[in-house]
Amino acid sequence: MPLCPDCTSERTVKNGHIHTGKQRYLCRTCGRQFVENPTNKTIDTPTRELIDRLLLERLSMAGIARVVQVSEQWLQDYVTCKAAQTPTQATVRPKKKGRLTVQCDELWSFVDHKGNKQWVWLALDADTREIIGAHVGDRSAQSAQRLWDVLPTVYRQCAVIYTDDWEAYQQVLPRKRHRVVSKSSGKTSYIERFNNTLRQRVSRFVRRSLAFSKSLRNHIGLLWNFIHHYNASLPL
């Protein structure tokens, strides 16, 4: 058996294989896992671009790692970096003051375990279908306020906002422009459809998912990554 590269202990044993099939070893002294004669693999630009596209589909991290033949640890580091660099503010087309219609809804999700609920608050322009604001937090009025605060100014000044009867909205939104409606009214159908699209396209938002987020920062970053892609793909 090879010596441990950290502590040079001889107490090493075979411990499965890495994604390339190469033998992996475990040091019983210090716990280090390693391979003999490791080679650093440079991930080229086409592979990174393919990963970016796969992150927009309903694939787990392990699935993406298998498809593109990279290590799960490298992929996790790449996603963490990408999530940290993704802007958390919607980019929308300029709007003039006038009649604007917004639909709002909340989507349940979780991070690490189902007891750690993270509600995704979303606002959508009913005319252009753009997502104009989002916030991840609890289901309180404070989170509703955070969603309201991130909306572009023109919407906060002019828009009529349609929501369900969740009381947090009623504590935050302007009464004269807030409309409480039922799902059967169709007045929130576009944002409900987006919620379904999000669950179908990003595996960590699937209700019964094994591909859940372990990091809140990554959960938020990949949500915004999808929102930016979604807005950019809408017809002009």
Results as ranks from 00 to 15, higher is better:
residue 193 R to W: 02
residue 100 L to N: 07
residue 133 G to N: 02
residue 218 N to H: 03
residue 136 V to A: 09
residue 76 Q to L: 11
residue 35 V to I: 13
residue 181 V to E: 12
residue 192 E to Y: 06
residue 87 P to Q: 04
residue 126 A to N: 09
residue 13 V to Y: 08
residue 157 Q to P: 00
residue 228 H to M: 06
residue 101 T to M: 09
residue 168 A to V: 03
residue 143 S to Y: 06
residue 48 R to Y: 00
residue 185 S to P: 03
residue 84 A to S: 11
residue 200 Q to Y: 00
residue 7 C to P: 07
residue 227 I to R: 02
residue 144 A to F: 05
residue 186 G to K: 01
residue 53 R to D: 12
residue 215 S to P: 10
residue 106 E to I: 10
residue 212 F to Q: 05
residue 146 R to N: 10
residue 174 P to F: 03
residue 100 L to I: 04
residue 66 R to G: 13
residue 215 S to D: 15
residue 90 A to E: 05
residue 192 E to F: 02
residue 97 K to Q: 13
residue 215 S to I: 11
residue 226 F to E: 07
residue 6 D to Q: 13
residue 196 N to T: 15
residue 20 T to I: 01
residue 39 T to F: 04
residue 183 K to C: 11
residue 98 G to K: 02
residue 149 D to F: 01
residue 136 V to H: 01
residue 233 S to G: 06
residue 122 L to T: 07
residue 201 R to N: 10
residue 106 E to L: 10
residue 48 R to M: 15
residue 3 L to I: 09
residue 8 T to H: 15
residue 218 N to E: 15
residue 10 E to W: 04
residue 91 T to I: 14
residue 87 P to F: 08
residue 122 L to A: 03
residue 115 G to H: 12
residue 111 V to W: 12
residue 220 I to A: 09
residue 163 T to A: 08
residue 62 A to K: 13
residue 50 L to Q: 14
residue 23 Q to Y: 06
residue 188 T to M: 09
residue 143 S to C: 11
residue 213 S to R: 01
residue 235 P to D: 09
residue 153 T to L: 13
residue 88 T to H: 08
residue 197 T to V: 11
residue 233 S to Q: 14
residue 169 Y to V: 07
residue 14 K to Y: 07
residue 158 C to A: 08
residue 82 K to E: 04
residue 146 R to L: 11
residue 144 A to V: 10
residue 73 Q to F: 00
residue 17 H to A: 15
residue 26 L to V: 05
residue 160 V to D: 12
residue 14 K to C: 09
residue 73 Q to D: 14
residue 19 H to G: 01
residue 96 K to I: 11
residue 37 N to H: 06
residue 17 H to V: 15
residue 71 S to Y: 01
residue 190 Y to M: 13
residue 121 W to C: 04
residue 74 W to V: 10
residue 234 L to T: 03
residue 176 K to A: 15
residue 120 V to T: 11
residue 150 V to D: 05
residue 53 R to S: 13
residue 230 Y to L: 07
residue 180 V to T: 12
residue 179 R to C: 10
residue 37 N to M: 00
residue 163 T to Q: 02
residue 84 A to V: 05
residue 180 V to M: 03
residue 58 R to D: 14
residue 35 V to C: 06
residue 117 K to H: 12
residue 33 Q to T: 15
residue 57 E to R: 11
residue 155 Y to M: 04
residue 18 I to S: 08
residue 95 K to F: 03
residue 110 F to S: 05
residue 145 Q to I: 02
residue 134 A to H: 04
residue 132 I to P: 01
residue 201 R to H: 08
residue 56 L to V: 12
residue 110 F to E: 06
residue 204 R to N: 07
residue 191 I to A: 08
residue 226 F to G: 02
residue 216 L to S: 13
residue 201 R to C: 04
residue 232 A to Y: 00
residue 40 N to Q: 14
residue 53 R to P: 00
residue 97 K to V: 07
residue 165 D to I: 03
residue 137 G to C: 06
residue 52 D to V: 11
residue 71 S to Q: 03
residue 123 A to P: 03
residue 236 L to Y: 09
residue 57 E to Y: 00
residue 40 N to M: 11
residue 211 A to S: 15
residue 199 R to I: 08
